[in-house]
Structures are given as C-alpha cells and as structure tokens.
Computed example of a mutant assay.
Amino acid sequence: MPKQRDVRAQRDLLSNATWQVLAEHGLPGLTLRAVAERAGCTTGLVMHAFPTKKALLLHARDLLYDRTAVRADAAEAASADAFGALQAVLGQAVDLPHGHHDESRVWVGFLAAALADDDLAERHRAANRSFLARVGRLVAACRPEWTDERLELTTKSLVALVEGLNVLAAADPRGYPARLQQNALAAALAPLR
C-alpha cells in the first residue's frame, strides 16, 4: 500500500522553510530552490504547494498576519482597560525583545516586493487596514471625546510609529534597541492616558 502524504505536515514544513529563508536572506534570497534546500525536499514539492515566488510571498504574509493577529487578540483580551489594551497591542507589534525580529524582516521583505506588485500591495493594504481598525477602536475607547479627525490622525501616527520602528530595527537593531522603541511608544501614548 502506498504511503499517504501528510499534506498539512508538508505545508507546515514548507511554510517554516519559506519564513526562515525570507527572514535570513531577505527578498533576493527567497527562491523556490532556497526553500526546497531549507525544507530538505525537492523544488517539485515546493512548486506543488507554491508554484511561484509570489505564492511564497503571499503565504509568508498570511502567516505573519495570522501570528500577529493571535498575539494582538491575546494582548487585548488580557488588558483591564482600553489604554492598557492599546499599549499592549502596540507594544507587541514593535520589534522589542519579544523575539519578533524575524517577523520584522519578513514584513520588510514582503513590503519591498509589494511596491512592484498590485496583488501583493493589496494584501498589504488589507492587513494594514485591519490593524488600523483595531488601533482606531482602542484609541476611540481611550478618548471618546476626540473628533474623528483627531482619532484618525492619532491612529495612523501610532501605526506609522510601530511599523517604522520595525523597519528601522530590522535593518539596524543596534541603532533602534528595545529601550528606544519602548520610550518612543510611551511618548506617543502619553496623550491618550
């Protein structure tokens, strides 16, 4: 009797290999061959699951979104009030000493590719809108008396701060250490207290 393929296990293996290659070697290093080598399989198996580099990138972005959404949900649920939830959600989103440095590198690689591809850019915009909606809801809960314009500016400023810190820390972790990131986030959150 032929051996049954464990499709889920193979996909998980390839997902992990894709993630590692993108985190370690960036966008230029993400090839079907590199993923196959990392996974210890053939390029044919990789192509069966992800026929193109774009498919690999979309999968890596979806995996990143899923991971960060789970953490954000947990951070928000564990908080006693809206400010604590906002602080926790944004705090887990930056590349602090949480071990998310690889996530920042994957995000940067995906974003670089999205600049030249409409499908990738739309996936990025959809994830960004979701994060903006979460942060906006929490900002509004902290400051219900603020105008819509001020809420939008504050929300987008906070998201830009954490995403900018991620990009800069991914390229220069010594220049943007955890302490600097924590202080920058605390200063930006001060008016919401």
Rank of each mutant, 00 (worst) to 15 (best):
K3Q: 04
R5M: 01
D6L: 09
V7M: 08
Q10W: 05
R11K: 12
L13C: 14
L14K: 01
W19R: 13
Q20L: 11
V21N: 02
V21M: 04
V21F: 02
V21E: 05
E24L: 03
H25K: 07
L30P: 04
T31C: 12
A34C: 14
A34R: 08
A39E: 10
G40Y: 09
C41Y: 08
T42Q: 11
T42W: 09
T43W: 13
T43R: 15
G44N: 13
G44K: 08
L45I: 03
H48G: 06
A49W: 12
F50K: 13
T52L: 06
T52D: 11
L56R: 11
L58C: 02
A60D: 02
D62E: 14
L63W: 09
L64G: 09
R67S: 13
A69I: 06
V70R: 07
A72Q: 10
A75M: 00
E76A: 11
A77W: 05
A80I: 08
D81W: 07
D81V: 09
F83K: 01
Q87C: 11
L90F: 07
G91T: 06
Q92A: 08
A93Q: 08
D95S: 14
D95I: 06
L96F: 00
L96A: 03
P97V: 09
H98Q: 02
H100D: 13
H100S: 13
H101K: 04
R105D: 10
V106P: 00
V108W: 04
A114E: 11
L115K: 04
A116C: 04
A116S: 08
D118R: 12
D118A: 11
D119C: 14
A121W: 12
E122S: 01
H124N: 14
A126P: 08
A127H: 14
N128Q: 13
N128M: 14
R129K: 14
L132S: 04
A133F: 03
R134L: 15
R137S: 15
L138F: 11
V139W: 01
C142H: 02
R143I: 05
R143T: 05
W146D: 15
L151E: 00
E152C: 02
L153Q: 15
T155G: 09
S157H: 07
A160M: 13
L161R: 13
V162M: 01
N166Q: 14
A169Q: 01
A171D: 02
R174D: 15
G175Q: 06
Q181C: 00
Q181T: 01
Q182S: 05
Q182R: 14
N183F: 07
A187G: 15
A187T: 13
A187V: 09
P191Q: 06
L192H: 12
